[in-house]
């Protein structure tokens, strides 16, 4: 982003001195950002006061304050913990399975051109396809319980981890690999000593993408085929016009997703200051 070739006249005049102007300049992005969000929430809250909504529209309308009350009630009565636990279990098992399978497979495909060529059609096909198409099939195979959800999360999270591990392995230093090999290292040692540590930043970046996909997987799996979980609560609320509960569920999902992605991003920043630019496909 920073253009080192900027012409003298174009240098932005950011005041470093702690003047009022400097303070405003530094906090401007944050103030404007939170300001917009506050404004949107305020307008949303005021809509029913400014416009008279028809009875039909009212059914589909919930103000931020109503949503906040619904959210507070969920936590206060503790009715949220069981469904949240069910969702989290599906999310966790699926993600761990994706890491357990994706990491070794990514290293293998990165190290072997033959294996990569053989797996490539399947990876391309499954990565491009929305995993939701498999849901009716998975419901037939695994039923309405936990496992169809786990498989959907697994399929969604597997490919970012697999593809990023592969990229990381492909980009690891050939010289280091040759040195280790000259000292008599086996393929296992190469993976352990050179390849995996080298591709760590890529893997963590893949994990960040995988979390987003896994959360989406939990939501859709619970929408269409589950008996318990946060997604189930949201669908039931939508069909009984409890719009506030739907939005409360959406906020919980979004917060968890943002929090986990933020944590992984911190890890990413620590691990890979030298990391090359990665595509942020979702």
């Amino acid at each position: 982003m920073t253009d080192t070739r900027a012409l003298p006249g174009m240098v932005p005049s950011t005041a470093d001195a702690p003047t009022v102007v400097g303070l405003w300049k530094r906090s401007e992005p944050m103030l404007l950002g939170t300001g917009t969000i506050a404004l949107v929430l305020l307008l949303w809250e005021l809509v029913p006061h400014l416009v008279t909504l028809s009875a039909g529209t009212k059914l589909f309308f919930a103000t931020p304050s109503q949503i906040a009350v619904a959210l507070w009630k969920m936590f206060y009565t503790g009715s949220i913990w069981h469904p949240l636990g069910v969702s989290a279990a599906g999310f966790g098992i699926g993600l761990v399975l994706a890491i357990v399978v994706g990491l070794p497979l990514g290293v293998l495909l990165g190290r072997s051109r033959t294996m990569n060529a053989m797996f490539d059609p399947f990876i391309t096909a499954f990565n491009a396809t929305p995993r939701l198409v498999f849901l009716p099939l998975l419901l037939l195979w695994f039923g309405l319980g936990m496992w169809s959800k786990v498989v959907i999360v697994f399929i969604g999270a597997l490919f970012p981890i697999l593809i990023n591990t592969y990229e990381g392995v492909r980009n690891s230093d050939k010289l280091l690999i040759n040195v280790v090999r000259s000292f008599g290292a086996k393929e296992w040692d190469i993976a352990r000593l050179v390849v995996v540590p080298n591709s760590m930043p890529y893997i963590v970046a893949g994990l960040r993408l995988a979390i987003g996909r896994a959360v989406l997987g939990v939501v859709v799996a619970e929408f269409f085929g589950s008996e318990a979980g946060l997604g189930v609560i949201m669908v039931r609320a939508a069909s009984s016009y409890q719009v506030d509960v739907v939005f409360a569920g959406l906020i919980i999902f979004a917060t968890l997703s943002l929090a986990m992605t933020g944590l992984v991003k911190m890890l990413e920043n620590r691990l890979g200051r030298w990391r090359p630019q990665l595509s942020n496909e979702n």
């Binding site: 950002g33 949107v40 739907v246 979004a254 943002l258």
Partner: peptide
């Protein structure tokens, strides 16, 4: 400035599983 103002809001939307709004939209 528009970027500063809209970026957090858009990030929030992008991060939240908007699929979850599907039942409402359909209804």
């Amino acid at each position: 400035r528009v970027g500063y103002a809209l970026d957090p809001l858009m990030t929030m939307f992008y991060a939240s599983p908007l699929v979850a709004l599907a039942p409402l939209v359909v209804v």
